[in-house]
Design a protein around this nucleic acid. Sequence first.
DNA 1: CGATCCATGTAAGTTGTTACATGATTCG
DNA 2: CGAATCATGTAACAACTTACATGGATCG
Lengths: 183, 183
Amino acid sequence: MLKYVLLGGLSKQPVTGYQLKQFVDGSSRHFWHAQTSQIYRTLNALETAGLLTSEIQEQDVRPDRRIYQITAAGQADLQAWLAEPMTEIAPTKDALLVRIFFSAQLDKATVLTQLRLQRSLHQRQLNLYQNEIADLISTQVQQNSALKRDGLLWEITRRNGELAEEAYVRWLDEAIERIEIEF
Amino acid sequence: MLKYVLLGGLSKQPVTGYQLKQFVDGSSRHFWHAQTSQIYRTLNALETAGLLTSEIQEQDVRPDRRIYQITAAGQADLQAWLAEPMTEIAPTKDALLVRIFFSAQLDKATVLTQLRLQRSLHQRQLNLYQNEIADLISTQVQQNSALKRDGLLWEITRRNGELAEEAYVRWLDEAIERIEIEF
DNA sequence: CGATCCATGTAAGTTGTTACATGATTCG
DNA sequence: CGAATCATGTAACAACTTACATGGATCG
């Protein structure tokens, strides 16, 4: 799966591993993430498989860098994967839900502190989607009109994050209220 | 993390690996899941660490089974973990969002088919939360009044699934409409 | 009589995390 | 002058997935 995130990130222009890491920490952070070490290992595997090539670009000021470029085989693999119908829904792994589910022995104050802290974190994430990320996408599209089709998809992806965080914050508010009264 | 799901599943009564697998495929499915093989391996590790013990129970009709029981050390470890404040939000990994983000080269019909299929799957999941899972929790609590505190937490966890799926379906409806018009 | 349930695991492989390692440049 | 940014990786470990393996009992 990281494979396709990287191929996707390379599908527009050749970039470095470092730039892909920034993509994974930035734009793609809310639907896929990875550590630097894993990115470089996956890039090596993709190069071995012939889905991308790389070459070193020497630089005077900054350290030399390795530029990765997607091959025709890589593009074909990516497009085939993108078109594959998904017959399942994405599984969730959420440590907060695990904790809540088993928290019957904890005292009320501990549970409430946990939920309130999460509320502030998710509220901040919601603001990020509504402001910084929304602005980023619209400036990107305005600067390059060739990205109109991409821009729509980025906006749709962003909107998923916004709606998901909205629902999560609403759920936390509900949960806090119920715990206060019934726990 | 699976560690705590298993300790949590064992915190009420001793059960078998098979029953834990059913728990992981059932009630805990929407916040944590695992394969059978991983469950048995993790149970071994937990036993080695002294967080649980096991003994074989012979059965006439059915195959013999190994019953796992949490130790005092296991209970302490679990409670300490439950009380730990979470300073980050759960990261998302969603292959549909990866696909949508990079789908600019695909044709409209393929993208719409993808989204509509996902809509039907998430709608079904939403119904599950609203009906089967809600009923399951309320019958469990009615049958055993000692589970009132647990029942509230289970219900809160279920409600997270319901709100999340509601938001996801709403997002898919929005996305389908925008793609139909603007893509 | 075939599918499903009960019940437990091993082996091999892939994916992901954490820690470590290096070193120049630019910004405040 | 210290922190952050640019830039790339290795090593070790932990977590997770997929495939394989077995075999009786029950249900439709």
